[in-house]
Amino acid sequence: MGSIDRSRSDSAPAAGFRLDKVNGKFMGVSAGIANHFNVDVTLVRLGWVVGTVLGFGSLVLIYLAIGLIAD
Results as ranks from 00 to 15, higher is better:
D71W: 07
L61I: 12
R18T: 10
A14P: 08
D20L: 01
P13F: 03
S58N: 11
I66T: 06
H36C: 02
L19P: 07
I62Y: 00
G57M: 05
M1R: 07
L43T: 12
A31I: 06
L54C: 08
G24N: 06
S7H: 10
A70H: 08
D71Q: 10
L64Q: 06
G55W: 04
A15N: 13
S11A: 12
L61G: 14
F37S: 07
A31D: 00
I33A: 10
D10M: 12
V50K: 04
A70G: 13
N23S: 10
V49Q: 02
G2F: 15
V50G: 14
L68V: 13
K25C: 15
R18K: 09
N35Q: 03
D71V: 03
L54V: 12
R45E: 13
G32K: 11
L68T: 01
I66C: 13
T52S: 02
K21W: 04
A12T: 15
T42G: 11
A31M: 04
N23H: 00
V22K: 09
G51N: 03
G51R: 00
A34D: 04
N35H: 08
D5E: 11
A34E: 04
L46R: 06
S7M: 11
L61C: 15
I62A: 15
V39I: 02
S3K: 10
I33E: 03
D40F: 04
V41N: 12
I62H: 05
L61E: 04
W48C: 14
F17E: 05
G2P: 13
I4R: 14
L54K: 05
G47A: 15
S58K: 13
P13S: 10
D20V: 10
N35D: 00
N35P: 12
S9Q: 13
R8H: 09
D5A: 09
V53G: 13
S11N: 13
M27I: 01
F56A: 04
L64M: 02
T52H: 02
R18L: 03
T42K: 06
G32S: 03
V49S: 11
V44S: 09
V49G: 14
S58G: 13
G55L: 03
G2M: 15
A34K: 06
V49I: 08
Y63K: 14
G32E: 09
S11R: 13
V49P: 01
N35F: 09
N23R: 00
V39C: 14
L61T: 11
L68Q: 02
M27V: 03
M27Q: 07
P13Y: 12
N35I: 14
S11P: 10
T52G: 06
A31N: 08
G55F: 07
M1A: 13
D40M: 11
D5W: 15
D10Q: 14
I69H: 02
V44P: 07
